[in-house]
Design a protein around this nucleic acid. Structure first.
Lengths: 203, 203
DNA sequence: CGTGCCCTTGACCATTTGGTCAAAAAGAAA
DNA sequence: TTTCTTTTTGACCAAATGGTCAAGGGCACG
């Protein structure tokens, strides 16, 4: 009945501008640290105008987060139980690293939400996320049992992939500070992580 | 001359209480998201009283961060160039994981500062941190060259240790949500990471 | 026990913040 | 062009925020 479907061209465009600006601001300062003024300015709208498209600061944040979860899990969904275990997992690592390269703000937004205790998405974690991870963990367990993959805890293996790839987006400043100028962190990470996981995954 | 050394017992005690409370609040909400009122309340002091011990919100944050850097790097300093490569590095992993267990708030405070671009500690990163890491990276390179350690990029190896261990403090909510109740993430991580790094480090 | 210093606080302040509202401006439809 | 709806905004508001200040309370020490 009251499905919020039909959107004007203007609505479509301005909501997108708001979300784009909000992604920038939220990912830099976290939810509490972000201000509507800053988002509005960066979106090129007045504050009341911004609140014409989203009823509250929280709605913007939640909208952003919701849109993000799927994007975030897609690479894991693509893991094919019918494929070659090592190649499937190495491809997953590559896809996740690619996301750190292409969507660093999204990664940091996500990271901040989790670090701060995920007050606005705990449900999603314990349901959707857990369900998908459990499913894929079962696949990994099967591979291990069949001797096609090292006998490692599948959940922690998945954590290790998340952690190692997202690190290059979330801790970018630190990584660059330590490596010094002239080095391209993620290019190097691609080589490093490929070698690392080849060793880790071999049966 | 104007060294801020001599501190009353009361000063010592109340500064400590403030820092303790601030650690809690900053690690939960980040710098901008934290409020003096919240810190004051949690410290059991009035706001003006709090500002008697620290001149500003920023000074509290900086004090916290400064005190943290050393603690954070100590485990790496302990890496002994004279020891057995694999055992030295595995011990480093264990020490870092122990810090995730014992000092999760400190880890999250640190993480938030980095994720937000390290506006209050960029210098420290590019100087102190880089210097120590470069030094230890040289040790690792030597080990690799001598065939006592896998031939991996030493900087990225160190990043991988940071990332994999701190993940269990910083992303605790997510890890627990995915694992479900009744599992002790860091206990499991100890086993998992030991196995992982044995494979990664072997020459 | 008095004196001087350290500590504490209630009252206060300017600014910022998330959010409202009525009215004007700009489209869209006729 | 007229009418009706969608967008946009200036003015406004209550609450929160970082921070100040003068005055009162406590404590140590002679």
């Amino acid at each position: 009945m009251s499905s919020p479907k039909t959107r004007t061209r203007i609505q479509e465009k301005n909501r997108a501008r708001v979300l784009e600006a909000a992604l920038d601001v939220f990912s830099r300062h976290g939810f509490r640290g972000a201000t509507l003024d800053e988002i509005a300015t960066e979106a090129g709208l007045s504050k009341p105008n911004l609140l014409y498209y989203f009823v509250s600061k929280e709605e913007i944040h939640v909208t952003l987060l919701e849109g993000l979860v799927d994007t975030w899990l897609d690479p894991l969904r693509d893991l094919d139980a019918g494929g070659d275990p090592q190649e499937e997992l190495l491809a997953y690592v590559r896809r996740k690293l690619q996301m750190s390269r292409d969507l660093p703000r999204e990664s940091r937004l996500f990271a901040q939400e989790i670090v701060q205790g995920a007050p606005r998405m705990k449900d999603g974690l314990a349901t959707d996320l857990k369900a998908l991870v459990d499913e894929k963990a079962e696949v990994l367990r099967g591979w291990s049992a069949a001797g096609r993959l090292a006998p490692v805890d599948p959940h922690h293996l998945i954590f290790s992939i998340w952690s190692l790839t997202q690190h290059y987006a979330d801790f970018d400043v630190q990584v660059r500070a330590v490596l010094g100028e002239g080095r391209e962190p993620i290019d190097e990470a691609e080589v490093f992580l490929d070698a690392l996981f080849r060793r880790v995954l071999a049966p």
